[in-house]
Write a protein that binds this DNA or RNA. Structure first.
Lengths: 333, 333
DNA sequence: TGAAGCTATGAAAGCGCTTACATCCTGCAG
DNA sequence: CTGCAGGATGTAAGCGCTTTCATAGCTTCA
């Protein structure tokens, strides 16, 4: 069943049917109603392939994220899909993992699928070595690239960023002011956002003129046991610390488990700060003080910006969002 | 840049180029290599729309889930996407919420996008009123419908099910045998899977000839506070209970919070059992005993079955997977 | 040496839609 | 009453690819 069936049954040409489908005004109301009635009657839906061929757009956006099963990223994917759909776009999901070559391959694949834009979720898409980001810049020559919590200074790439540096700075600053000077920083990634967080941590120490022991900075996987074990190791080697700042709620859980196992009271003996304010922060006891990176706002802004790009508005290539500190039971600040 | 550019540059006809693209054997090795070289040289990728028009398939599967931000469903989406991609298919994600009319609309939308099949994730897609499932059965007339943890007896609909009834039965039975006879059941849904779980709970009581107080069965949202508050209410009204079985880890967290607030020791005074074995079960203290519904296996089986459908194999329309009970700190069983 | 059977290739007809351009009305100003 | 503007509609040319069918060029075997 195709446009010809409709045109025949409605007694008009296919061009008129097409105009009705596309909401073109140059159709009399009467004809329009008749065509709509016929379409409904025979249950006609336009063939998207043929449509795509003509329009050269599928109204589809590729969402690339490293791992949609991650609690934080799953939320991002959820909000992105919702916003895109509200704007009449479909979302093709692509989980890439962290391997650079895989990310390249998947981006290539999305390009070949003629998506209208690609959204990269998570700063893991930005490599530490600038040259390694070339594949993104190249892709941007063909379609808009949106970075959710990332930024790359290149044409046709738009970033929406949460102010991670300041968030970690403030939280660390507050800890120091409250008298906690031996602070561990556990982090998950050396990506741009990871570097910002680390910078915020260092800045707070610098401002208060407190040196940082390198042992107190540790790169974990997003893994509860990793965090717990590292703290246990430090503790058993006699190191003193009274606060743990993390770059992910899961690491904060690890810290909590360490504290529990070693009879340290939280928050009295040990303050713990999570990141991303995921559901995990409501599940622990005490509940986690966590930094809310406003994932919903990030996603809404990203999609709005993209729609702006599509209709030729003058949109900023970088938008900042301010993180919130959600105070719960693992801190006294 | 299109197939004509390639054909011209390679000095062959577009038919030959098309054959090379599609791996047709009737091309001499020499010609094939020349064409491949040209494609690579000019960076040609076939236009998917034109391709779809000819082949009438986009190699794309629609994944509908009620809420991909839910920890459990996010995992399912992740595994489904991975498996589909391994089989050369893209995944279009669609989060529908629980509203029946919305679910209908979205299914319609996916059909109009000419996806090759639709996967419905989560038993929430099956309505209690059979007539309300008609929209799924109708859709199955056009393409295969896969239900992840659901089952509907109709042509072209394939279900992969976790044995929820038995899982809850076993866990309840074990609780009763260990001497816990006042068990609360907190659940999130009256869907098919929800009914199975409830049936398992009842069966265990029946087998042990223990009556069930209706107050002890409670329908919560997937909401920590709901679960906590309901238990608090029961407790304050003097009801006695020494175990809580739930249909979702989040409800178990609520139970844990209740216990903590009221000085009940877990698991000594109160046993708690979660469901779905999500990351949440690792975050609490003590960690949750939880029922692992094998989401990865469910998803792999679903996709394998679908591929079987595509290539005409004789696949079962119902596949069962056995749940595991993961014993952790909230029970003594 | 020639008929039969292959293989490799090309020509051309769609696939279902959009859209530029042509055409036909209708109404209204002159 | 004529002419023209502009709205409504139709015609037909693509969009880039797949695929059927025809054919040219080889091989093979009697």
């Amino acid at each position: 069943m195709n446009i010809y069936d409709v045109s025949e049954k409605a007694g008009v040409s296919i061009a008129t049917v097409s105009r009705v489908i596309n909401g073109n005004n140059n159709v009399s109301e009467k004809t329009k109603q008749k065509v709509l009635a016929v379409m409904k009657e025979i249950g006609y839906t336009p063939n998207v392939f043929a449509r795509g061929l003509g329009l050269n757009t599928m109204k589809t956006i590729g969402i690339m994220c490293t791992d949609s099963s991650d609690v934080y990223l799953a939320n991002a994917v959820y909000y992105l899909e919702r916003e895109l759909r509200n704007n009449g776009y479909d979302a093709i999901l692509c989980c890439t993992g962290n391997e650079l070559s895989t990310k390249k391959d998947y981006l290539e694949l999305l390009l070949s699928k003629r998506v209208d834009a690609v959204i990269l979720v998570g700063s893991k898409f930005l490599e530490t070595k600038p040259a390694d980001n070339k594949y993104i810049i190249d892709a941007a020559a063909k379609l808009p690239i949106m970075l959710v919590n990332g930024y790359l200074d290149a044409p046709n790439i738009y970033g929406t960023l949460c102010d991670d540096e300041n968030a970690v700075y403030e939280v660390t600053d507050a800890l120091i002011k409250s008298g906690r000077k031996d602070i561990i920083y556990l982090y998950t990634s050396t990506s741009l956002s990871g570097q910002c967080k680390l910078a915020g941590f260092k800045k707070a120490h610098f401002v208060h003129n407190i040196p940082i022991n390198n042992e107190y900075l540790h790169l974990c996987n997003k893994n509860i046991a990793n965090a717990r074990d590292y703290l246990t190791d430090l503790f058993e080697r006699g190191r003193h610390f009274n606060a743990v700042v993390t770059s992910d709620d899961s690491l904060a859980v690890g810290a909590l488990k360490f504290a529990h196992a070693h009879g340290m009271k939280v928050p009295e003996d040990l303050s713990i700060i999570g990141y991303n304010n995921t559901i995990i922060s409501n599940c622990t006891d005490p509940e986690l003080t966590s930094i809310d990176t406003k994932v919903e706002a990030l996603c809404i802004t990203t999609v709005n910006t993209l729609m702006g790009v599509f209709n030729g508005s003058n949109v900023p290539c970088k938008t900042n969002i301010t993180a919130d500190i959600i105070k719960r039971g693992t801190t006294l600040i």
